[in-house]
Simulated scan of single mutants.
Amino acid sequence: MKKQELIHLHSLLAQVQHHYEHEADTTVEHDLYADLGVKPTSIHKSKTDHKEAVFALASGLTDAMAEETDEPQALTAD
């Protein structure tokens, strides 16, 4: 995958995170991602840096979504 494609994927994952946090009214814990200091707009960072960021962000998102599905859902009367 080319660097430009990784940056695009990184941007898309950041948008997914923002949308998920808004819809689920939660915050995705992603300390590893934050520690990397690589944002989708950090075009000066290396391809490897963006690759690590993509994996860290994807991992944080999937962990948050897995926790949400593991929680018991309250039954509501319609």
Rank of each mutant, 00 (worst) to 15 (best):
L9N: 09
H10T: 08
A24F: 03
H44A: 05
E23I: 04
V54C: 14
T48P: 01
H10V: 02
D35V: 01
K39D: 06
K39G: 05
V28W: 04
L32M: 07
E23P: 03
D49I: 08
A66F: 13
G37H: 09
I43C: 04
A66D: 10
Q4R: 09
A66Q: 10
F55A: 15
T48G: 11
Q15D: 12
K3S: 12
G60R: 12
A66P: 02
K39R: 11
V16W: 07
Q17N: 05
K47F: 06
K39A: 13
E29I: 03
P40L: 03
T27Y: 02
S46G: 10
D31E: 08
E67C: 10
Q4G: 02
I7A: 03
D31K: 07
H10F: 11
E29A: 07
D31T: 10
Y20H: 06
H22C: 04
F55T: 13
A58N: 12
E5A: 14
E52M: 13
V16H: 11
Q15S: 12
V38W: 09
H22R: 06
D49T: 04
T27D: 10
H19G: 05
H19N: 06
E23C: 06
T48K: 15
L12F: 13
H10W: 08
V54L: 15
S46H: 08
V38K: 07
G60C: 13
L36N: 09
K2P: 15
H22S: 02
S11T: 11
V54H: 02
H8C: 02
L57P: 00
D25R: 05
V16T: 08
D31G: 07
G60P: 11
K47R: 10
E29C: 05
T27A: 08
P40A: 03
P40G: 04
V28Q: 04
E21M: 00
Y33C: 03
G37N: 03
E68G: 08
D25Y: 05
A53S: 15
E29N: 06
L6M: 15
E68D: 09
H22T: 09
A34D: 11
P40M: 03
H8D: 07
S46A: 07
F55I: 12
D35F: 05
A24E: 01
K51T: 12
H18G: 05
F55L: 13
T41C: 08
Q4W: 03
E29Q: 06
T62A: 15
S11L: 01
K39V: 08
K45Y: 11
K2N: 10
L32P: 00
L12Q: 12
P40Y: 04
F55Y: 09
Y20E: 01
T62K: 15
K39C: 08
A56W: 01
T48F: 13
L6F: 00
A24K: 00
K3F: 11
E5C: 09
A24N: 00
P40V: 02
A56F: 09
H30G: 10
D35A: 14
A24V: 02
E68V: 07
G60K: 14
T62F: 14
Q17F: 04
V28E: 01
D25L: 04
S42M: 08
K3T: 15
E23K: 03
I7N: 01
K2D: 02
